[in-house]
């Protein structure tokens, strides 16, 4: 594990970053300064966790990357993946009137993928998240964890180059969360997609990410970057290993230091 200066960038790979935020600021009309001077690079194939306390601007940063909101200052550069982004919201955000299959096929239908082609890809996506017997169920008939899996399947159905996830497992119980963590890592390994994962859980970020970006609250900016160099695939053994415990302690200290530095 290594501490790196946020300005010098991580030493994960030397390819061009596919996401690059330079000195990004976001001030809302209400006067809230959510982000100020945020710098972030994400390289192809990386699994990056954005870690920070509530209200530090993690969701705001993710929405800027997705192009769902415009920065007040600075530059957000995502040109190479602009039209190839999957987004998993904090809530499942499913259309209640559509079945699980209908929800998952939405991105394909909006893009005009031929119905037969779409059907096979939807079936594969449903299979991937283990919802096969619930393909024709409506969201209200699913448990919270199943809804989240449907939401993840929808984001994955286009096999996006960049997958943005906003605390997707925050509302779930620990057992379900662990299971979905493992599923997500397996998917990441098999699809080789790039993932930016927002969380406020130290343990989750260490378990999942190759690199953890620790943010300070108000205004949000990058305080520390930590490289988690434990090899993938990671599993329950990793979760109980002394290595994992040490990484969590170090990350936790970094987070507390960042909170101490913040203006709040």
């Amino acid at each position: 594990m290594a501490y790196t200066d946020p300005m010098s960038g991580p030493a994960v790979s030397d390819t061009q970053p596919i996401v690059s935020l330079r000195n990004v600021g976001k001030t809302f009309d209400s006067g809230t300064v959510a982000l100020a001077g945020l710098d972030l690079d994400v390289r192809s194939g990386e699994f990056v966790a954005l870690l920070g306390p509530s209200g530090c601007g993690k969701s705001t940063a993710l929405r800027l990357i997705a192009g769902l909101s415009e920065p007040s200052s600075g530059v957000v550069e995502t040109a190479s993946v602009r039209d190839d982004i999957g987004f998993v919201f904090q809530e499942p955000t499913l259309m209640p009137w559509a079945t699980v299959a209908g929800n998952i096929s939405l991105p394909l239908e909006l893009r005009g993928v031929p119905a037969r082609d779409a059907a096979t890809r939807v079936a594969a996506a449903i299979e991937r998240v283990g919802l096969r017997s619930f393909a024709d169920a409506h969201p209200r008939q699913l448990s919270g964890g199943m809804r989240m899996r449907a939401s993840i399947a929808r984001a994955l159905v286009t096999e996006p180059k960049l997958l943005l996830m906003d605390e997707p497992f925050a509302a779930l119980d620990e057992i379900t969360r662990f299971k979905l963590n493992d599923d997500l890592l397996a998917l990441w390994q098999s699809l080789r997609t790039t993932i930016v994962f927002v969380t406020h859980s130290v343990f989750e970020s260490v378990y999942l990410a190759q690199r953890i970006v620790v943010m300070t609250p108000r205004p949000g900016l990058v305080a520390r970057e930590l490289t988690i160099d434990a090899s993938h695939p990671r599993d329950a053994r990793f979760r109980t290993s002394p290595d994992y415990a040490a990484l969590c302690r170090a990350t936790s200290e970094a987070l507390h230091a960042a909170i101490g530095e913040g203006g709040a």
């Binding site: 929405r63 192009g67 039209d83 987004f87 919201f89 809530e91 259309m95 991105p107 909006l110």
Partner: peptide, 13 residues
Amino acid sequence: DHNLADLFRLYRA
């Protein structure tokens, strides 16, 4: 739902 509207925007509906 705002998030659903954002989702449609993300996929350039």
